[in-house]
C-alpha cells in the first residue's frame, strides 16, 4: 500500500515524522470524513428505523427518531401480505422469482463469458477482435434501442414474459462486461503455462478446465458477485420482459410502494425496500474487497 513496504532494504530513517493525534490536519480530515460517512449512513438508518415503527408513531414522530416500541409487524406484512394489483401474497413471490431468475442467469452468463474470454485471450483467430470491439460498444449503447427487437425475438421463440426469456436477456447483456473481465484476467496468466499444457497434448477444452479454470477462481468469484448484484438490482428488463406473475423483486417492490390505491403504510414500504436491498447488501458486506475489485475491473478498459 505504501512505499515504505516496497523498498525495505534501504537503511535510512524513512516515513513521515510522527504527528500528534489531535493536530489541526487530522481534525479536518477525520471531521470531513465522519460528516460524509454520516450523510451516507442516514438513508440506511432511516430505512431500518421506519420499518420497526408502527404507523401511529410514524405520524407523530419524525423519521430520524428511534422507535419507542419495536415491532416486526411491517416486516411480516411486507413479506407475506402486501398487495400488488390483484394478488396479495407480499414480496415473497417476487423474491422467489428473483432467485429463479438470478441463479440460472449468473451461471449461464459466466459460463459463456469465461469461455469467450478464454478464446479471445489464448486462442485468438482472425476477426475475433472485431467482434470483441462490437461487443464492448454494445455495453455503452443505451439498452432502449435494442429492447423492442428483443421483444419480437422472445415472442417468436415463445418465451416472452416467461422466466427463460429474462434469463436469456440477462445472459446477453451481461456478456460484454464479463467477457472483458475474463479476457483481461486470462491475458495476465503467464503464457508459459498455456504453452506447457499444449506441449503435454492438452487441447482447447482440456486447458480451459484443467489449467485456466482452477487458476482463476478469484475472478470467477468477482464475476459472480458482479452478476448477482447486477441482476438482482435490475429493473428495466424485469418490467419489460415479465408479467405480474413473474415480476422480479425490484419491480414488485416498486409496484407495492408506488401503488396509488389504499392508505400508504410507510413502515411496510420501508420494510419491503430493506428486504429487497438485503441480498445485495449482504453480498457487499461479505465480499468486501472483491466487490471493489469487480467494479474496478469492469470499469477500467484495456
Amino acid at each position: 500500500m505504501t512505499d515504505s513496504q516496497n523498498n525495505s532494504g534501504v537503511v535510512e530513517p524513512r516515513g513521515p515524522k510522527p504527528r500528534k493525534i489531535m493536530s489541526r490536519r487530522n481534525i479536518i480530515l477525520y471531521g470531513t470524513l465522519l460528516v460524509v460517512a454520516i450523510y451516507y449512513l442516514i438513508p440506511l438508518y432511516v430505512m431500518i428505523v421506519t420499518s420497526l415503527k408502527g404507523m401511529p408513531e410514524i405520524r407523530l414522530g419524525n423519521i430520524f427518531s428511534p422507535p419507542v416500541e419495536v415491532t416486526f409487524e411491517p416486516w411480516i406484512k411486507a413479506w407475506s401480505q402486501a398487495c400488488t394489483g390483484l394478488n396479495c401474497d407480499g414480496l415473497s413471490r417476487g423474491f422467489w422469482n428473483s432467485v429463479q431468475i438470478t441463479l440460472p442467469s449468473v451461471i449461464v452468463s459466466i459460463a459463456i463469458a469465461s469461455v469467450n474470454g478464454y478464446a479471445l485471450a489464448n486462442w485468438r483467430f482472425k476477426g475475433a477482435n472485431l467482434f470483441f470491439t462490437i461487443l464492448i460498444f454494445g455495453a455503452f449503447i443505451p439498452y432502449q434501442i435494442m429492447i423492442y427487437p428483443l421483444v419480437i425475438l422472445l415472442r417468436d421463440l415463445g418465451i416472452y414474459t416467461k422466466l427463460p426469456g429474462l434469463i436469456l436477456i440477462h445472459s446477453i447483456f451481461g456478456m460484454p462486461i464479463l467477457t472483458l473481465l475474463f479476457r483481461n484476467y486470462f491475458t495476465t496468466i503467464p503464457e508459459e503455462l498455456f504453452k506447457a499444457a499444449r506441449v503435454d497434448g492438452a487441447k482447447f477444452w482440456g486447458i480451459y478446465f484443467r489449467v485456466m479454470m482452477p487458476m482463476s477462481l478469484p475472478i470467477f468469484v468477482v464475476a459472480i458477485i458482479m452478476q448477482v448484484t447486477g441482476i438482482w438490482n435490475d429493473f428495466l428488463f424485469g418490467v419489460i420482459y415479465t408479467k405480474p406473475d413473474t415480476y422480479p423483486m425490484t419491480v414488485q417492490l416498486n409496484n407495492i410502494v408506488n401503488s396509488v390505491q389504499g392508505v400508504k403504510e410507510y413502515n411496510v414500504n420501508m420494510a419491503a425496500t430493506l428486504l429487497t436491498g438485503l441480498v445485495p447488501l449482504t453480498i457487499y458486506f461479505i465480499s468486501g474487497k472483491l466487490f471493489v475489485r469487480g467494479i474496478a475491473a469492469g470499469a477500467v478498459k484495456g
Binding site: 438513508p43 430505512m47 448484484t229 438490482n233 429493473f235 436491498g277 447488501l281 453480498i283 466487490f291
Partner: peptide, 14 residues
C-alpha cells in the same frame, strides 16, 4: 450495491 429502485424509494421517503 443497492438497486436504483431501493435508492429512489428511500429518498422519496426522506
Amino acid at each position: 450495491a443497492l438497486s436504483f429502485i431501493v435508492t429512489g424509494l428511500v429518498w422519496q421517503w426522506i
